[in-house]
């Protein structure tokens, strides 16, 4: 197995981090203490950061739907960053499924059926960037000239006809409930090509079974497209963490047979220890993904934070770190001491 599946969390109510005053770089923490609060619901945490001081200073993972609430609040402000996160559609290319998605024309048709700009603007309230392939434009390895495919419903319809998409055969889209809005937006656009689209939203308690099926590759998933979110731990070489996971021979999210061309390109990247050569290898992989329309490229959502007043929080693209977060003398924790 190439990965683990987290099936449950066992969080302490509060996790307290204390400063290491002996740290010998300029990244020594600027706070005496950080408390992670796990005794709150997302809704109550947002209320506390927006409406008062002293209970919650930072809320991570703010939904785009709540962004205006934060911006309009008396005590909090919204901090955003183009994060190393992606939302894409995985194509089911197992021959045992029925093979329709193995046809590049079908995959391209679905890619040009989607209005990426509208998806980012309306579904994610503007807090996302359209993707051309799998690598966000701010990372190494985004291929030169990469542009998201423009919506062209007529050409999508023609490609589907050319590929022989069976009359009346619906497109099945599965999604975790948390991405149901994205799936519905995709479905709306694809329906305009004439296809019938079924969307199945999987509740949280069904996610583990779906993840096992995808990762273990013993059973063939029933969907044609799975809306899926993933992340990268750095901006240096996305294929190591992203493309490999979607297409590699040991990739957790590969939903089809191993791809010899991808494995060749990835092996070539592995062999490059020179950073410039490695970057070129990463670009070649991202270009291959684009040319093959190997995923339904959708968007890179921003990370949104609600930050209480008197807290100077600096967001990172790849992580949530507090080493350079500080509070002013007016902050509740300093006023009262």
């Amino acid at each position: 197995m190439a990965t683990n599946i987290i099936t449950a969390e066992d969080r302490s109510e509060r996790v307290v981090l204390e400063v290491n005053r002996d740290h010998n770089t300029d990244r020594c923490a600027r706070l005496s203490q950080v408390v992670f609060r796990n005794d709150l619901s997302p809704g109550s945490a947002l209320d506390l950061v927006c409406d008062q001081e002293g209970e919650v200073d930072i809320v991570t993972e703010v939904s785009p739907a709540d962004a205006d609430r934060v911006q309009d609040s008396r005590h909090a402000r919204l901090v955003t960053i183009d994060a190393n996160r992606i939302v894409v559609g995985i194509f089911n290319t197992w021959p045992e499924h029925d093979g329709l998605l193995t046809d590049r024309r079908v995959r391209e048709a679905l890619n040009i059926a989607v209005d990426h700009d509208r998806l980012c603007r309306e579904t994610l309230n503007g807090y996302a960037t359209p993707l051309a392939s799998l690598t966000p434009s701010w990372c190494n390895g985004c291929f030169p000239g990469a542009e998201p495919r423009r919506r062209d419903a007529d050409r999508a319809r023609a490609l589907l006809n050319e590929a022989g998409w069976p009359e009346g055969r619906p497109l099945s889209i599965a999604t975790p409930a948390s991405l149901a809005g994205v799936a519905e937006a995709v479905a709306r656009d694809v329906r305009e090509t004439g296809l019938t689209v079924d969307v199945t939203s999987v509740p949280d308690d069904g996610l583990v079974a779906g993840a096992r099926m995808l990762i273990e590759k013993k059973l063939v998933p029933p969907w044609d497209v799975l809306i899926h979110a993933w992340f990268d731990l750095s901006s240096d070489l996305p294929p190591a963490v992203v493309h490999r996971e979607f297409f590699g021979s040991d990739g957790a999210f590969r939903a089809g047979p191993p791809n010899a061309e991808f494995d060749r390109l990835f092996g070539d990247l592995m062999s490059r220890i020179d950073p410039q050569e490695a970057r070129q290898g990463a670009e070649a992989i991202d270009k291959w993904c684009y040319d093959e329309a190997a995923v339904l490229s959708l968007c890179a959502p921003q990370a949104l934070y609600a930050v209480n007043q008197h807290v100077d929080f600096k967001a990172y693209r790849a992580t949530f770190e507090l080493a350079d977060t500080e509070v002013s003398a007016d902050h509740w924790s300093r006023r009262s001491r």
Partner: peptide, 17 residues
Amino acid sequence: AAAPAGEVRVFDPHPLN
């Protein structure tokens, strides 16, 4: 750099917490 000061309370539901 100034001496470390203050406390920050965080709510982080991210699965990578």
